[in-house]
Design a protein around this nucleic acid. Structure first.
Length: 151
DNA sequence: GCCAACGTTGGC
DNA sequence: GCCAACGTTGGC
């Protein structure tokens, strides 16, 4: 099993919105970064995901989800009406992919980025080191440390 | 293939 | 709203 972190802007789509989806499952559409896309294509059903709230009052980990469908072409890239539309992506040659994730758990309080940043054991975490990546792997050690210290 | 210009992310 | 850190684009 692998561990991941996925960012979302709660004003657009929060972990509560994920909970409220049918079966608490949502397509994770709109990722338009190659590195993030490549990580999504590595995801397996059952992989664990931290849901991270960005661009908000207290950015941080808001809860947990699970991959429930492996990567498939992102339909919003084909939709001219979508803000995620990309004319360079076609169903014959899709450029962007998404996975489905299912809600698992919402934290009572967000684990703030500032807390994670100040933890020496998390100083190598990609979230801390790489500012602008919306989908990224989390190591098993980081995952366990966060589970045992901040939940 | 280099790199300047431009666009985006996202913390603060 | 500012701006640093990147990623992307496109001329050459």
């Amino acid at each position: 099993m692998n561990y991941w972190l996925m960012k979302t802007e709660p004003d657009t789509f929060s972990i509560e919105d994920l909970l409220n989806c049918p079966q608490s499952i949502s397509m994770w559409e709109g990722v338009r970064n190659y590195q993030a896309r490549n990580f999504m294509r590595e995801m397996k059903v059952g992989d664990r995901v931290m849901i991270y709230h960005s661009s908000c009052a207290v950015p941080g980990i808001a809860g947990f989800a699970e991959v429930c469908r492996t990567a498939y072409p992102d339909p919003t890239a084909f939709d001219p009406e979508s803000s995620y539309y990309d004319p360079k992506s076609s169903s014959e040659k899709p450029r962007w992919f998404c996975v489905d994730v299912q809600w698992r758990f919402t934290l009572d309080e967000v684990i703030p980025l500032s807390t994670l940043k100040s933890d020496p054991l998390l100083s190598d975490m990609l979230l801390v080191k790489r500012n602008r990546l919306s989908v990224m792997p989390v190591t098993a050690a980081e995952w366990k440390h966060i589970q045992s210290h901040y939940l």
